[in-house]
Amino acid sequence: MIDLTNKKILLVRNDNVGDLVCTTPSIEGLRKKYPNSQIDIVVNSYNFDAINSNPFVNKIYCYTKPKHKKSFLNKVKAAFGKLKILFDIKREQYDAVVIFRSGYSKSAELFSNITNAKYKVGVKDPKGKDKFSIHIEANHNKNEVEFCFDCLLPFGVNYDNENTFYFVEEYLFNKYTEYSDHILFHISSRIDENKYFIENYFSIFEKLNDKKILISAEPDDFLMAEELSNKFNNVFFIKTKSLHDLSGLIKNVKLFITLDGGAMHLAPAVGTKTISISGKTNMNKWYPWGYEDLVLQDKSKIANNIKPDLVVKKIMEII
């Protein structure tokens, strides 16, 4: 075992919100193993909320990806912001760097390569061009939470019932306390195979006509959400301003039903039971941590093929 007591450790998780949420148990485990070590992390502006106010990290390096900016000037500003972070990381003289990515990422390894760390952990480049000193095998039949702990095994960090974590400010929680006896449906997903059609929601809500139901959605699905809420007296559509705003709502409700996406990982991280209506996603790897038994997925890997009666049955088993 490599001992990192009183060492400087850099973690890198610069992809999506859900991925970073799945990393939080291992960060907690690392802190418990090395309470006096410096634990810093690199994230991006897109997933920053998933680590903001996390009690187990010392410093957060947050940069904006140039591809997320439209104008040339903003792309240049983003590029210079990233360069500054790389300079700051190089100057910090880290002892170990861990890339939490189950697929090789050249852009993530850049943050490792800029350091002179003795221990550099990551998944092997298929072309064999990476500079990691310790390679981690990515087992896609394991949940992402388990994979993140695999990345820390060389340092003696093991899973010990840690949960995913997402910090919700008190004002956001208080904003939605009136909905504590409601069921919340999040009806948006970006991928066609993960979408669930309005007819299925009609059928579900007809069978739940004695329940208090809320709907949340991304802007592309606002019209669908409004049509559903207008048809049923017990169904209400709430336009949350962001995923972070949505976290305050999710934390209050008694049950959350969602399609694949970041919100699916957000709910367990704030302590809310989560049913996932899943499509093409590999749910061995991405099931909401702690709620594997509440995953609904058809053999076709098309979410819309999941019968509404199955969704209703699962809901009634819980409430």
Rank of each mutant, 00 (worst) to 15 (best):
E144I: 04
I89M: 01
N200I: 08
K195N: 15
E199H: 12
L266K: 10
K70R: 14
P288K: 06
K313I: 04
I302G: 02
K251I: 02
K67Q: 07
I215F: 13
K207L: 14
A269S: 15
I213V: 15
S300D: 09
I183S: 09
T164N: 12
N305R: 10
I318E: 08
W289C: 07
R91N: 11
E292I: 11
P25Q: 09
N74G: 01
S278T: 13
E137S: 10
D160Y: 11
K82P: 00
M224P: 03
K301L: 14
N234Q: 10
S112Q: 03
D130H: 00
D309R: 09
L223A: 14
N194G: 14
Y61W: 06
Y171N: 13
D220Y: 02
H265R: 09
Y94W: 03
N74E: 13
S112A: 07
M224D: 05
L184M: 07
D3S: 02
A225K: 04
R31Y: 01
E199A: 13
L11E: 02
L73A: 05
K254I: 10
E206W: 03
N16M: 06
I318H: 04
D95P: 02
L223V: 11
G279W: 12
L310T: 09
Y291Q: 06
K142A: 01
D245H: 00
